Computed example of a mutant assay.
Amino acid sequence: MDDNKETEGVIKYKLDFEQAPLPHPALALQLEAWRQRLCALGLIGGNDPARYDGLGFGNLSHRLETGSTNFIISGTQTGHLDKMEPEDYALVTLCDPASNTIRAQGKTAPSSEAMTHAAIYSAAPTAQAVIHVHSPEIWQQAESLGLATTNSNIAYGTTEMAEEFARLISSGFLDSNVISMGGHEDGIVSWGETLDEAGELMLQLASQAGLAERAK
């Protein structure tokens, strides 16, 4: 990988993590069903030397309930797994951008993008699910697809990225619940009032960008 590029999947926040069984395992299974569909398109994955030095990429989350700040999110560096179980997901119970701290529990630490997911839930009260994928096809066509894009100088997994998402969502000028991450190569994020809504948005973009489901 180019020395000037960031290493994919590195956790940049302070993590206060409790090893414990994951609450609400049924919610993790709902996320897993959508994760499988996204993996089939190559939007979530890992163990591919040609992509990000073989590191895992992509994550998704679901708020526990409307108004809650807690959410279930896929674990860090799990993209390569063919099938994830509830123990491969984590519950985020606190996000404090001021101290760059995430508190979570489960058997696997939360995704490096947990701070961004938390920012979306905070800025978009009706959002119940967030999906973050990696797609060079969508990312390179972000402008022609009409996607809002974060500042290219802002790195993934940082409080600055969380603030940028909050700024864009709060602006009221978004044409859709999708944002391209200008400073995070291939990063695309969607969210919706339901998991299906967030997922269908991503599938629609994939189709517009010319992606077809890949053979497993």
Rank of each mutant, 00 (worst) to 15 (best):
E200T: 13
A148H: 00
C95D: 03
S176R: 06
W34V: 15
L211W: 05
F71K: 01
Y13I: 15
P125W: 05
Q208R: 15
I44Y: 03
H62W: 12
A119R: 07
A162G: 15
I11V: 15
A123N: 07
K5L: 14
H62D: 09
P97V: 09
H134V: 07
M1I: 14
L201Q: 01
L205G: 09
S68G: 01
E8W: 13
G58T: 14
E65V: 12
E143Q: 14
A129I: 10
W34T: 14
L15F: 06
I179K: 04
E160M: 01
G46L: 06
I154D: 05
D196E: 15
D186Y: 08
S190F: 07
G182A: 09
S207G: 09
E163V: 05
W139F: 06
H184D: 06
E164L: 08
A206I: 00
L27D: 06
A50K: 15
V130Y: 09
G46N: 13
Q105I: 13
Y156D: 02
W139A: 08
L211M: 00
G210H: 06
I72F: 05
T194C: 00
Y156I: 05
S170Q: 11
S68I: 00
G67T: 13
C95W: 07
L145V: 02
P23E: 02
K12E: 13
L27Q: 14
I73G: 11
G183P: 01
L145I: 11
I120K: 03
T66L: 06
D96A: 09
T101L: 03
P49T: 13
S111A: 05
G75R: 01
Q36K: 12
G45V: 08
Q141K: 14
F57C: 07
Q105A: 04
T149F: 02
I154P: 01
K107D: 08
F17S: 09
L147T: 04
N153I: 07
A162I: 13
E185V: 15
S99L: 01
K216Y: 04
I179L: 00
G199P: 05
E18D: 08
Y13F: 15
E6A: 04
T150A: 11
T108C: 03
C39Y: 10
N4F: 03
T76I: 12
H184E: 09
L29Y: 04
A40M: 03
D175N: 13
A124V: 12
L41N: 11
G42M: 01
D53G: 02
K216N: 13
P125I: 01
L43D: 08
D48F: 01
G58Q: 10
T66K: 02
Q19M: 04
W139T: 12
S122M: 10
L211N: 05
N153Q: 15
T149H: 03
